[in-house]
């Protein structure tokens, strides 16, 4: 018996989301009176997972798993879950985890709930709260199968340190045919992705044109943030489609979301509402975004944003 948690890494380095899912798995393990086993693929320094509650790490080192593939990764997790007698498998809400989880659910005949935002309110029946209707509501859902799969929404549980240590064990799964082969990757390696970002700076049609995005990037840089945009901005080709956030774009669940020149249409808000703290900068005090935000500045972005960048630089220098 155990709780199995999939800890993601990039170029060998564990992601912050990996520490969060381990913290979450530990909370479930405590509720169920069992322990946490983490599965890591081609990652380094996996002992650190012990600091968040894992008591064992299954470490897979295999060149064939260098590129993420939903089928081979799900087979790996499935074999680990069988070996550990896992009652619950915990994953994050990254694009990769969401890709593999449905395959794993079929393989393990396990009920799966995604976008979970809290520790289970009960473990018998096993009940979790998750967002639904694109963050316009939450549902409390029971999972009635023997093995359960939980996809945790990013930044919803946080990191919880535990004093403990993890033993590391090598694990060699047998891999199926991958079925899908990556032939090329186009990824900005110097930029924070929206999914991994703790802070997201987003611009709307109020910025008038793509030539004005320099100040948005300056703001993102001083905050170590990812950049995003409203749908019309990507439809107009001012920004790449991958930056489009909202109900029909990428979901955002950051700690801080700064909306600049965005009116706050219902479809936009739905996709970013899971963010903890929202700041709006808009010339129109009647813009609907002010009703959804925590902090607001009524003003012209072309004046406010450069000034804010200077203030933040000064703040960073003073707090460095």
């Amino acid at each position: 018996m155990s709780i199995l948690v999939y800890t993601e890494s990039e170029n060998g380095k564990l992601k912050k989301a990996a520490l969060e899912v381990v913290s979450y798995a530990k909370a479930i393990a405590d509720q169920m009176g069992t322990s946490v086993t983490a599965l890591a693929v081609n990652a380094e320094n996996v002992e650190t997972l012990g600091n968040y509650g894992a008591s064992k790490v299954l470490l897979v080192n295999n060149e064939a798993l260098k590129e993420f593939n939903a089928k081979t990764y799900s087979a790996t997790l499935q074999q680990a879950a069988k070996k550990e007698g896992a009652q619950v498998v915990v994953l994050s809400s990254s694009a990769n985890s969401k890709y593999l989880a449905p395959l794993l659910a079929v393989g393990l005949e396990a009920g799966y709930v995604s976008n979970v935002v809290e520790a289970p309110s009960s473990v018998s029946p096993f009940t979790v709260k998750h967002s639904a209707f694109t963050n316009k509501a939450f549902a409390n859902t029971e999972i009635n199968t023997e093995v359960k799969i939980v996809g945790l929404s990013n930044n919803s549980f946080g990191l919880v340190e535990a004093d403990g240590s993890a033993t590391v064990e090598d694990f060699s799964p047998s891999l199926p045919d991958s079925g899908v082969t990556v032939t090329s990757v186009d990824k900005a390696t110097d930029k924070v992705s929206i999914a991994d970002a703790e802070i997201v700076v987003s611009g709307g049609r109020g910025l008038k044109g793509p030539e004005n995005w320099g100040m948005i990037e300056d703001l993102a840089e001083v905050l170590g943030a990812a950049t995003a945009c409203s749908k019309p901005v990507s439809d107009l080709g001012w920004r790449p489609h991958s930056e489009h956030v909202g109900q029909t774009g990428k979901p955002v669940a950051s700690n801080l979301y700064i909306a600049i020149g965005i009116s706050g249409a219902i479809q936009h808000l739905a996709g970013i509402n899971a963010s903890k703290v929202k700041v709006v900068i808009n010339t129109d005090p009647e813009a609907p975004f002010f009703k959804a935000a925590d902090y607001g500045v009524v003003g012209d972005a072309f004046e406010v944003v450069p000034k804010l960048v200077e203030k933040l630089k000064a703040f960073k220098a003073a707090n460095a």
């Binding site: 509501a137 939450f138 859902t141 029971e142 009635n144 009524v298 406010v304």
Partner: peptide, 25 residues
């Protein structure tokens, strides 16, 4: 079905926005 939504809820109502003067960032 393997899962069952037993109860829905809406997000807690939001407090009023705190406005900051554009000259006092």
């Amino acid at each position: 079905a393997e899962t069952k939504a037993v109860r829905f809820e809406k997000p807690a109502p939001k407090g009023a926005v705190k406005l900051v003067d554009a000259d006092n960032l």
